[in-house]
Design a protein around this nucleic acid. Structure first.
Length: 115
DNA sequence: TATGTGACATCAA
DNA sequence: CTTGATGCCACAT
C-alpha cells in the first residue's frame, strides 16, 4: 500500500517546483533533480515524490525519466502509453518507452535553471 | 524508536 | 557487455 497523506509540503513540494519548471519539450532525470535539491543520493525520493504528484498537483511527471531516458514510471500514469503520448506531443521522440536523443532533450536544472 | 518502502544511481564481478 | 548487489535519503506506519 503506497497511499499516503494528501499533503506533504516538504521535499516533495520542492521536487514539484523543479519539475514544473522543466521547459516544454525537455526532459530530466531523477538524479539531476535530486542533486539540484542538494540531496544528491536521494534520487529515489524524487521518483517517490512523483508517485504522490499525480495525486496532489498537476505535475508534468512525464518529463521526468531515469538517467538513461527510460520511462520507468509510465505504469503509474493513467493510460499505458499516456506518458509516451505526452512526450511525443512535446516533440520528444519516444521508442519502446525510451526517449530518443535523451542527451539532446535532457534538461539539467542545476545548469539550465541556475539558482 | 525502528522498520519498510520507492517512478534511481553507481559500482563490482 | 550483462547481471547483481549496495547506497541513498525522505517519508509512512
Amino acid at each position: 500500500m503506497v497511499k499516503y497523506s494528501e499533503k506533504s509540503e516538504s521535499y516533495f513540494q520542492k521536487v514539484y517546483e523543479v519539475v514544473k519548471q522543466i521547459p516544454h519539450g525537455r526532459v530530466t532525470s531523477y538524479g539531476a533533480i535530486a542533486r539540484f535539491l542538494g540531496t544528491g543520493g536521494s534520487a529515489r525520493m524524487v521518483g517517490w515524490a512523483m508517485n504522490a504528484s499525480h495525486t496532489m498537483e498537476e505535475v508534468p511527471a512525464h518529463r521526468v525519466v531515469n538517467r538513461i531516458g527510460l520511462l520507468t514510471g509510465k505504469h503509474h500514469f493513467q493510460g499505458t502509453n499516456l506518458m509516451q503520448q505526452l512526450l511525443e506531443n512535446e516533440g520528444i521522440e519516444v521508442v519502446n518507452d525510451q526517449v530518443q536523443d535523451f542527451k539532446t532533450h535532457f534538461w539539467d536544472p542545476s545548469k539550465e535553471l541556475l539558482l
